[in-house]
Amino acid sequence: MSDTVVHAEPYGSLLFAPEVPCFIISWSGFANSEQFRFLMNRGLELYETEAARTKPLGWLADTRQVQAVKPTDQEWMRTDWNIRAQRAGIHHVSFVVPETVFGQISVQNYTHNVAEANNYEIATSQHRTLKEAKKWLKAAIG
Rank of each mutant, 00 (worst) to 15 (best):
R78N: 02
F30I: 02
V93H: 00
N32A: 02
A139N: 14
A139Q: 15
E9W: 02
A8M: 09
D62A: 03
T124C: 13
W136Y: 12
M77K: 00
A8V: 05
A17T: 07
T124I: 03
A139G: 12
A52K: 15
I90T: 05
I122W: 04
N32M: 01
A51N: 15
K70C: 08
I105E: 00
D80M: 11
K55Y: 06
Y11N: 09
H127K: 14
N41V: 08
S28T: 14
L46N: 03
E132F: 04
R42G: 01
A85C: 13
F23Q: 05
P71I: 03
V20I: 12
D73H: 06
G89E: 12
H127R: 13
H127F: 13
I25R: 01
G43P: 03
A17M: 03
A8R: 15
W136R: 04
L39K: 00
N32Y: 06
S106G: 10
G89M: 13
T111H: 01
V6L: 15
S2H: 11
V20S: 05
R64K: 11
R42H: 10
T4E: 12
E99N: 11
Y120A: 07
D80F: 11
M40A: 10
L15D: 09
L44Y: 15
Q86V: 10
Q108M: 08
P56F: 11
F38A: 07
G89K: 12
S13Q: 15
V96T: 06
P21H: 02
V97G: 03
R78D: 00
Q35K: 06
V97K: 07
M40H: 04
I83P: 05
E99S: 08
P18M: 06
R84V: 03
N41Q: 12
A85R: 06
V6D: 09
E9R: 13
T129F: 10
E121Q: 15
S94A: 15
N118V: 07
V20C: 10
E50P: 00
C22G: 04
P71R: 04
A17K: 07
W27S: 05
L15N: 11
M1E: 13
Q86D: 14
S33E: 14
L137P: 10
Q104N: 06
E45R: 13
A117R: 01
A123Q: 15
D80S: 14
Q65Y: 07
T124L: 07
R42I: 01
I24E: 05
F95T: 01
W76I: 08
G29A: 09
V5M: 15
K70F: 12
N41L: 12
E75D: 13
C22E: 06
V5N: 10
V114Y: 00
